[in-house]
Protein backbone atom coordinates (compact mmCIF):
# COMPACT_ATOMS: atom_id res chain seq x y z
CA UNK A 1 0.00 0.00 0.00
CA UNK A 2 1.31 3.42 -0.88
CA UNK A 3 1.78 5.77 2.02
CA UNK A 4 0.95 8.67 -0.26
CA UNK A 5 -2.27 9.16 1.71
CA UNK A 6 -0.66 9.94 4.99
CA UNK A 7 0.35 13.46 4.14
CA UNK A 8 -3.17 14.22 2.98
CA UNK A 9 -2.12 15.53 -0.39
CA UNK A 10 -2.89 12.47 -2.50
CA UNK A 11 -6.45 12.68 -3.76
CA UNK A 12 -8.61 9.65 -3.11
CA UNK A 13 -9.49 9.14 -6.73
CA UNK A 14 -7.64 10.60 -9.66
CA UNK A 15 -8.03 10.13 -13.38
CA UNK A 16 -5.30 11.52 -15.59
CA UNK A 17 -5.24 11.87 -19.35
CA UNK A 18 -7.34 8.72 -19.72
CA UNK A 19 -7.73 7.33 -23.21
CA UNK A 20 -9.80 4.22 -23.84
CA UNK A 21 -11.18 2.44 -26.85
CA UNK A 22 -13.59 -0.32 -27.75
CA UNK A 23 -13.21 -2.41 -30.89
CA UNK A 24 -10.48 -0.05 -32.04
CA UNK A 25 -12.66 3.03 -31.69
CA UNK A 26 -11.40 5.64 -29.27
CA UNK A 27 -14.13 6.84 -26.90
CA UNK A 28 -12.21 8.51 -24.10
CA UNK A 29 -9.75 11.04 -25.42
CA UNK A 30 -7.90 12.33 -22.40
CA UNK A 31 -10.12 12.54 -19.34
CA UNK A 32 -8.86 14.34 -16.25
CA UNK A 33 -10.87 14.18 -13.05
CA UNK A 34 -10.10 14.25 -9.35
CA UNK A 35 -12.47 13.29 -6.55
CA UNK A 36 -11.49 13.78 -2.94
CA UNK A 37 -12.95 12.09 0.09
CA UNK A 38 -16.38 13.42 0.96
CA UNK A 39 -16.95 15.12 -2.40
CA UNK A 40 -19.87 14.58 -4.72
CA UNK A 41 -19.14 15.24 -8.37
CA UNK A 42 -21.70 15.30 -11.13
CA UNK A 43 -20.69 14.37 -14.65
CA UNK A 44 -23.02 15.61 -17.33
CA UNK A 45 -22.93 15.57 -21.06
CA UNK A 46 -24.89 14.67 -24.18
CA UNK A 47 -25.46 11.13 -25.34
CA UNK A 48 -22.37 9.55 -26.78
CA UNK A 49 -19.96 11.87 -25.01
CA UNK A 50 -18.30 8.96 -23.20
CA UNK A 51 -19.83 9.21 -19.71
CA UNK A 52 -20.86 5.56 -19.45
CA UNK A 53 -17.60 4.44 -21.00
CA UNK A 54 -15.77 6.26 -18.26
CA UNK A 55 -17.89 4.41 -15.68
CA UNK A 56 -17.17 1.02 -17.24
CA UNK A 57 -13.46 1.73 -17.53
CA UNK A 58 -13.27 2.73 -13.86
CA UNK A 59 -14.94 -0.58 -12.93
CA UNK A 60 -12.57 -2.56 -15.17
CA UNK A 61 -14.90 -3.73 -17.95
CA UNK A 62 -12.74 -6.01 -20.13
CA UNK A 63 -14.45 -4.82 -23.33
CA UNK A 64 -12.54 -1.56 -23.10
CA UNK A 65 -8.86 -1.08 -23.61
CA UNK A 66 -7.07 1.73 -21.90
CA UNK A 67 -4.44 3.04 -24.28
CA UNK A 68 -3.05 5.93 -22.28
CA UNK A 69 -3.29 7.67 -18.93
CA UNK A 70 -3.97 6.43 -15.43
CA UNK A 71 -6.60 5.91 -12.77
CA UNK A 72 -5.35 6.06 -9.21
CA UNK A 73 -7.32 5.09 -6.14
CA UNK A 74 -5.83 6.01 -2.77
CA UNK A 75 -2.56 6.58 -4.57
CA UNK A 76 -2.46 3.18 -6.28
CA UNK A 77 -2.73 2.65 -10.00
CA UNK A 78 -5.76 0.43 -10.48
CA UNK A 79 -5.59 -0.21 -14.21
CA UNK A 80 -3.96 -3.60 -13.76
CA UNK A 81 -6.52 -4.69 -11.19
CA UNK A 82 -9.32 -7.06 -12.11
CA UNK A 83 -12.87 -5.83 -11.54
CA UNK A 84 -13.21 -7.86 -8.34
CA UNK A 85 -9.97 -6.47 -6.92
CA UNK A 86 -11.30 -2.98 -7.55
CA UNK A 87 -14.53 -3.84 -5.77
CA UNK A 88 -12.66 -5.33 -2.85
CA UNK A 89 -10.59 -2.17 -2.51
CA UNK A 90 -13.75 -0.10 -2.25
CA UNK A 91 -14.79 0.97 -5.74
CA UNK A 92 -18.36 0.60 -6.81
CA UNK A 93 -20.30 1.13 -10.01
CA UNK A 94 -24.08 1.39 -10.03
CA UNK A 95 -24.88 0.15 -13.51
CA UNK A 96 -27.19 1.95 -15.86
CA UNK A 97 -28.31 -1.40 -17.24
CA UNK A 98 -27.76 -4.08 -14.61
CA UNK A 99 -27.49 -7.59 -15.99
CA UNK A 100 -29.98 -10.35 -15.32
CA UNK A 101 -28.54 -13.44 -13.62
CA UNK A 102 -31.28 -16.09 -13.70
CA UNK A 103 -31.62 -18.44 -10.74
CA UNK A 104 -29.32 -16.45 -8.45
CA UNK A 105 -31.16 -14.87 -5.53
CA UNK A 106 -30.31 -11.36 -4.41
CA UNK A 107 -29.60 -12.63 -0.90
CA UNK A 108 -27.20 -15.40 -1.93
CA UNK A 109 -25.36 -13.20 -4.36
CA UNK A 110 -25.04 -10.28 -1.99
CA UNK A 111 -23.94 -12.39 0.94
CA UNK A 112 -20.98 -13.70 -1.06
CA UNK A 113 -20.18 -10.23 -2.41
CA UNK A 114 -20.31 -8.63 1.04
CA UNK A 115 -18.26 -11.46 2.57
CA UNK A 116 -15.56 -11.07 -0.07
CA UNK A 117 -15.36 -7.32 0.23
CA UNK A 118 -15.35 -7.35 4.02
CA UNK A 119 -12.75 -10.10 4.16
CA UNK A 120 -10.48 -8.05 1.93
CA UNK A 121 -10.90 -5.10 4.27
CA UNK A 122 -10.53 -7.07 7.48
CA UNK A 123 -7.62 -4.98 8.76
CA UNK A 124 -9.42 -1.72 8.18
CA UNK A 125 -12.59 -3.00 9.81
CA UNK A 126 -10.58 -4.22 12.79
CA UNK A 127 -8.85 -0.84 13.07
CA UNK A 128 -12.29 0.74 13.33
CA UNK A 129 -13.14 -1.66 16.13
CA UNK A 130 -15.37 -3.91 14.00
CA UNK A 131 -15.13 -7.52 12.94
CA UNK A 132 -14.96 -8.83 9.39
CA UNK A 133 -16.26 -12.21 10.51
CA UNK A 134 -18.63 -13.32 7.72
CA UNK A 135 -22.30 -12.82 8.51
CA UNK A 136 -24.38 -15.90 9.10
CA UNK A 137 -27.27 -16.21 6.65
CA UNK A 138 -29.61 -15.08 9.40
CA UNK A 139 -27.50 -12.04 10.32
CA UNK A 140 -27.14 -11.15 6.71
CA UNK A 141 -30.86 -11.36 6.11
CA UNK A 142 -31.45 -8.98 8.98
CA UNK A 143 -28.90 -6.51 7.64
CA UNK A 144 -30.34 -6.78 4.17
CA UNK A 145 -33.86 -6.26 5.41
CA UNK A 146 -32.75 -3.11 7.23
CA UNK A 147 -31.18 -1.65 4.12
CA UNK A 148 -34.12 -2.66 1.95
CA UNK A 149 -36.49 -0.87 4.30
CA UNK A 150 -34.50 2.34 3.84
CA UNK A 151 -34.98 2.01 0.10
CA UNK A 152 -38.66 1.09 0.54
CA UNK A 153 -38.06 -2.29 -1.01
CA UNK A 154 -40.32 -5.20 -0.29
CA UNK A 155 -38.87 -8.12 1.73
CA UNK A 156 -39.63 -10.46 -1.13
CA UNK A 157 -36.80 -8.79 -3.02
CA UNK A 158 -34.24 -10.81 -1.11
CA UNK A 159 -35.38 -14.06 -2.66
CA UNK A 160 -35.96 -12.77 -6.16
CA UNK A 161 -33.45 -13.63 -8.83
CA UNK A 162 -30.90 -10.96 -9.57
CA UNK A 163 -32.52 -8.32 -11.79
CA UNK A 164 -34.84 -10.89 -13.34
CA UNK A 165 -38.18 -9.34 -14.13
CA UNK A 166 -37.24 -6.18 -12.23
CA UNK A 167 -38.90 -2.98 -13.40
CA UNK A 168 -36.62 -0.08 -14.31
CA UNK A 169 -37.11 1.46 -10.90
CA UNK A 170 -36.53 -1.82 -9.09
CA UNK A 171 -33.25 -2.30 -10.89
CA UNK A 172 -32.03 1.12 -9.80
CA UNK A 173 -33.05 0.49 -6.21
CA UNK A 174 -31.35 -2.87 -6.29
CA UNK A 175 -28.13 -1.20 -7.41
CA UNK A 176 -28.30 1.27 -4.54
CA UNK A 177 -29.07 -1.59 -2.16
CA UNK A 178 -25.89 -3.30 -3.31
CA UNK A 179 -23.99 -0.10 -2.73
CA UNK A 180 -25.46 0.22 0.75
CA UNK A 181 -24.32 -3.28 1.65
CA UNK A 182 -20.86 -3.08 0.06
CA UNK A 183 -20.10 0.34 1.62
CA UNK A 184 -17.73 1.58 -1.07
CA UNK A 185 -15.28 4.43 -0.62
CA UNK A 186 -15.67 5.64 -4.15
CA UNK A 187 -18.93 5.13 -6.01
CA UNK A 188 -19.75 5.85 -9.61
CA UNK A 189 -23.49 6.03 -10.32
CA UNK A 190 -24.28 5.70 -13.98
CA UNK A 191 -27.62 7.34 -14.83
CA UNK A 192 -29.18 6.07 -11.66
CA UNK A 193 -31.98 8.57 -12.26
CA UNK A 194 -32.95 7.45 -15.73
CA UNK A 195 -36.32 5.78 -16.03
CA UNK A 196 -37.42 6.72 -12.52
CA UNK A 197 -40.66 8.49 -11.76
CA UNK A 198 -40.51 11.31 -9.29
CA UNK A 199 -41.36 9.20 -6.24
CA UNK A 200 -38.80 6.57 -7.07
CA UNK A 201 -36.26 9.28 -7.77
CA UNK A 202 -36.84 10.70 -4.28
CA UNK A 203 -36.37 7.32 -2.64
CA UNK A 204 -33.24 6.51 -4.59
CA UNK A 205 -31.77 9.98 -4.00
CA UNK A 206 -32.44 9.67 -0.30
CA UNK A 207 -30.66 6.35 -0.35
CA UNK A 208 -27.67 7.88 -2.08
CA UNK A 209 -27.62 10.84 0.29
CA UNK A 210 -27.61 8.45 3.25
CA UNK A 211 -24.57 6.73 1.80
CA UNK A 212 -22.60 9.85 1.11
CA UNK A 213 -20.46 11.25 3.87
CA UNK A 214 -17.07 12.62 4.75
CA UNK A 215 -15.30 9.38 3.85
CA UNK A 216 -17.01 8.63 0.58
CA UNK A 217 -16.37 10.04 -2.85
CA UNK A 218 -19.11 9.97 -5.46
CA UNK A 219 -19.36 10.51 -9.15
CA UNK A 220 -22.93 10.91 -10.40
CA UNK A 221 -23.31 10.47 -14.10
CA UNK A 222 -26.51 12.01 -15.32
CA UNK A 223 -28.05 13.35 -18.41
CA UNK A 224 -30.46 15.65 -16.66
CA UNK A 225 -30.21 18.33 -14.07
CA UNK A 226 -33.28 16.86 -12.36
CA UNK A 227 -31.27 14.47 -10.16
CA UNK A 228 -29.21 17.36 -8.84
CA UNK A 229 -32.31 18.82 -7.21
CA UNK A 230 -32.18 15.88 -4.84
CA UNK A 231 -28.48 15.21 -4.53
CA UNK A 232 -26.35 18.32 -4.17
CA UNK A 233 -23.05 18.02 -5.94
CA UNK A 234 -19.95 19.91 -4.90
CA UNK A 235 -18.65 20.00 -8.45
CA UNK A 236 -20.17 19.68 -11.89
CA UNK A 237 -18.29 18.59 -15.01
CA UNK A 238 -19.40 18.66 -18.59
CA UNK A 239 -18.17 15.93 -20.88
CA UNK A 240 -18.05 16.22 -24.62
CA UNK A 241 -16.46 13.99 -27.21
CA UNK A 242 -14.42 11.96 -24.74
CA UNK A 243 -13.09 14.83 -22.65
CA UNK A 244 -14.19 16.93 -19.75
CA UNK A 245 -14.62 20.32 -21.36
CA UNK A 246 -15.83 22.35 -18.46
CA UNK A 247 -15.88 22.09 -14.69
CA UNK A 248 -17.48 24.26 -12.07
CA UNK A 249 -19.77 24.38 -9.07
CA UNK A 250 -23.47 23.49 -8.90
CA UNK A 251 -24.31 26.64 -10.85
CA UNK A 252 -22.89 24.99 -13.96
CA UNK A 253 -25.73 22.49 -13.92
CA UNK A 254 -28.27 25.28 -13.76
CA UNK A 255 -26.62 27.08 -16.61
CA UNK A 256 -26.70 23.89 -18.58
CA UNK A 257 -30.37 23.51 -17.83
CA UNK A 258 -31.03 27.03 -19.13
CA UNK A 259 -28.84 26.98 -22.22
CA UNK A 260 -28.60 23.34 -23.15
CA UNK A 261 -25.44 21.62 -24.29
CA UNK A 262 -25.40 23.55 -27.55
CA UNK A 263 -25.64 26.92 -25.83
CA UNK A 264 -22.98 25.98 -23.38
CA UNK A 265 -20.69 24.80 -26.11
CA UNK A 266 -21.15 28.04 -28.06
CA UNK A 267 -20.25 30.05 -25.00
CA UNK A 268 -17.17 27.89 -24.37
CA UNK A 269 -16.09 28.30 -27.97
CA UNK A 270 -16.53 32.08 -27.71
CA UNK A 271 -14.49 32.17 -24.56
CA UNK A 272 -11.79 30.15 -26.21
CA UNK A 273 -11.74 32.44 -29.26
CA UNK A 274 -11.56 35.72 -27.33
Amino acid sequence: MSDGNSNGTTPMFEIENLHAEIDGKEILKGVDLTVNQGEIHALMGPNGSGKSTLAYVVAGDPRYEVTEGSIRFQGEDILEWSPDERARKGLFLAFQYPTVIPGVSMANFLRLAVTNVRTARAEEIAAEGGSAQPFTPREFRRLMREKMALLKMDDAFATRYLNEGFSGGEKKRAEILQMALLEPKMAVLDETDSGLDIDALKVVSEGVNNLSGPKVGMLLITHYQRLLNFIKPDFVHIMHDGRIVESGGPELAHELEAKGYEGLRARTAEAAAS
Binding site: A59, G60, D61, P62, R63, S82, P83, D84, R86, A87, R88, F92, L93, F95, P98, T99, I101, P102, G103, V104, N108, F109, L110, L112, A113, V114, N116, V117, A120, Y161, L162, Q178, L182
Partner: peptide, 20 residues
Protein backbone atom coordinates in the same frame (compact mmCIF):
# COMPACT_ATOMS: atom_id res chain seq x y z
CA UNK B 1 -18.18 -8.60 -15.34
CA UNK B 2 -21.25 -7.57 -13.41
CA UNK B 3 -20.68 -10.14 -10.68
CA UNK B 4 -16.96 -9.42 -10.53
CA UNK B 5 -17.65 -5.72 -10.13
CA UNK B 6 -19.27 -6.73 -6.82
CA UNK B 7 -16.16 -8.48 -5.54
CA UNK B 8 -16.72 -12.03 -6.81
CA UNK B 9 -13.71 -13.74 -8.37
CA UNK B 10 -14.08 -14.96 -11.92
CA UNK B 11 -14.47 -18.56 -10.72
CA UNK B 12 -17.06 -17.55 -8.17
CA UNK B 13 -18.95 -15.57 -10.78
CA UNK B 14 -18.91 -18.51 -13.16
CA UNK B 15 -20.12 -21.03 -10.62
CA UNK B 16 -22.80 -18.65 -9.43
CA UNK B 17 -24.11 -18.31 -12.98
CA UNK B 18 -24.01 -22.09 -13.46
CA UNK B 19 -25.74 -22.75 -10.16
CA UNK B 20 -28.36 -20.19 -11.10
Amino acid sequence: FYLMSRGLSEDEAMSMIVNG
